[in-house]
């Protein structure tokens, strides 16, 4: 037995794009042909000598082409090391791991995406998959909020989503500045702007823990059934494969049962949010 689940495949960073002062988008060559991920899954990223961290995959399988993208906030040792890298640098990859979004259940439905801040990173994987298969879904609504205009991720794609007739994309910032003439207010202030058919809507949200409570109230307040709401949760992970124990949410393992959870399933778990 030579191969170990803990040994990363070494590969190269193809491109690095600065998205904000804190976040960069890394395009990484898939270690073995295609990564073969589902939207919502994550990989364990190694910077040898520094360590390993779980990062959600930000690109959609429909746009793989031998590489994948990770949107990384500079916030710890591994992510600091990633931010110091130049294209061509080598990183280690394990995965993809975890349970992603149930895209088959979403076909034919109206989709309401509600990402906050960096929460757009994992949701973008699904959003672009949906955009690429636009005709198999109903309405596509995106309500995106960040702290300020300079924190908005994927500006080009946001512009494209806003411009498209078949996507309703509303953006807000908690605090505006002189460059901003859009909506100002927390993400929940966007919800009164839309009307939906809740029975046919599947909602997908991801953001900082504090945001979930308020966004969930809005989603439930619109009459969306709990079983039609999906969340992507963040946890500390050391193995990614259900052993190390760090990501446990009571009896659930974020790395295996999640990181995407159905709200009806997770809502009884006190430690979840």
């Amino acid at each position: 037995m030579e191969k170990s689940i803990y040994t990363p495949d070494m590969t190269r960073v193809i491109d690095i794009e600065e998205l904000t002062s804190l976040e960069k988008l890394f395009t990484i060559k898939s270690p073995n042909g295609e990564l073969g991920h589902e939207p919502g899954q994550f990989v364990m990223v190694s910077v040898l000598g520094v360590g390993e961290a779980p990062i959600s995959i930000s690109s959609s399988p429909s746009r793989s082409n031998g590489h994948f993208e990770l949107c990384v906030r500079q916030v710890g040792n591994v992510t600091n090391a990633l931010h110091a890298m130049q294209p061509g640098a080598k990183v280690g990859i394990r995965g993809p791991f975890g349970t992603g979004f149930p895209i088959e259940k979403m076909r034919g439905k109206d989709l309401l995406f509600a990402p906050g801040g960096l929460g757009l990173a994992p949701l973008r994987s699904l959003i672009n998959q949906v955009v690429d298969e636009r005709s198999s879904f109903g309405r596509v609504i995106i309500l995106y909020g960040t702290k300020g205009p300079s924190d908005l991720l994927f500006r080009d794609e946001l512009d494209e989503w806003v411009a498209r007739d078949d996507i309703e994309c509303l953006i807000t910032v908690d605090r505006g500045d002189e460059t901003w003439d859009g909506h100002v207010g927390v993400i929940t202030t966007l919800f009164p702007e839309i009307t939906i058919n809740p029975r046919n809507t599947i909602a997908i949200t991801c953001g900082p823990p504090i945001m979930y409570r308020f966004v969930l109230m809005e989603l439930l307040g619109k009459g969306i059934p709990e079983s039609q709401i999906y969340l992507s949760l963040e946890r500390r992970m050391k193995c990614g494969v259900g052993k190390c124990g760090h990501c446990q949410i009571e009896s659930l393992y974020c790395c295996q049962d999640g990181p995407v959870f159905n709200y009806a399933k997770i809502k009884g778990f006190e430690e979840a949010l």
Binding site: Y6, L48, G49, E52, K238
Partner: peptide
Amino acid sequence: CFNVYDEVDMLLTKGTRSRNWDSCQLDEFA
């Protein structure tokens, strides 16, 4: 439960990735 960590030699030429026992009772575990 375990933690995983990297160590690098003094010359920064090579290193090891190891695991050690961790504890859910420690503050930083989750």
